[in-house]
């Protein structure tokens, strides 16, 4: 039904307690949406997406939301997802933060290459 009207059922607002304790449906919702975004964009970026881009995708998805999704919200939601095996991880390359959604170890060389690439 929701799909037909074009509403995502996962678009509630976060409450006070949710923000304080990191629990509640709000972060689960974001978690589900993060997985969705990562699955959809995996063919373009190979499972590595910058946190900023991820946030933009999420905001687009939840445009009816009164409060925009912040990067901090994403980080919290991802930390919840870590429990499901080490699939999702936030890595810092240069000054930017990236979210890795495929289980590969990035070694020093990889990181260095990515750091160089982000400069252009």
């Amino acid at each position: 039904m929701c799909a037909n009207i074009g509403v995502d059922p996962l678009a509630s607002n976060k409450g006070f307690w949710a923000e304080l304790l990191g629990i509640g449906d709000f972060y689960y919702e974001i978690g589900v949406q993060i997985i969705e975004v990562c699955m959809l964009t995996r063919s373009h970026n190979g499972g590595l997406i910058s946190l900023q881009e991820l946030c933009n995708h999420l905001r687009q998805r939840r445009k009816t939301d009164r409060e925009a999704v912040t990067e901090d919200d994403c980080l919290r939601a991802i930390s919840k997802l870590k429990l499901l095996g080490s699939r999702f991880e936030v890595i810092t390359i240069g000054k930017k933060k990236f979210v890795r959604s495929v289980p590969t170890e990035l070694n020093k060389d990889h990181n260095h290459i990515l750091e160089l690439a982000t400069r252009f």
């Binding site: 929701c2 996962l10 629990i23 449906d25 589900v32 997985i35 699955m39 429990l83």
Partner: peptide, 25 residues
């Protein structure tokens, strides 16, 4: 299927009654 993908599929199928990663595990 990896647990993360399953979490996504399952929660999407449930619609609004979301479960937490902890519950799934």
């Amino acid at each position: 299927i990896s647990l993360t993908d399953m979490y996504y599929h399952f929660n999407r199928a449930r619609g609004t009654e979301l479960i937490s990663p902890d519950d799934l595990w």
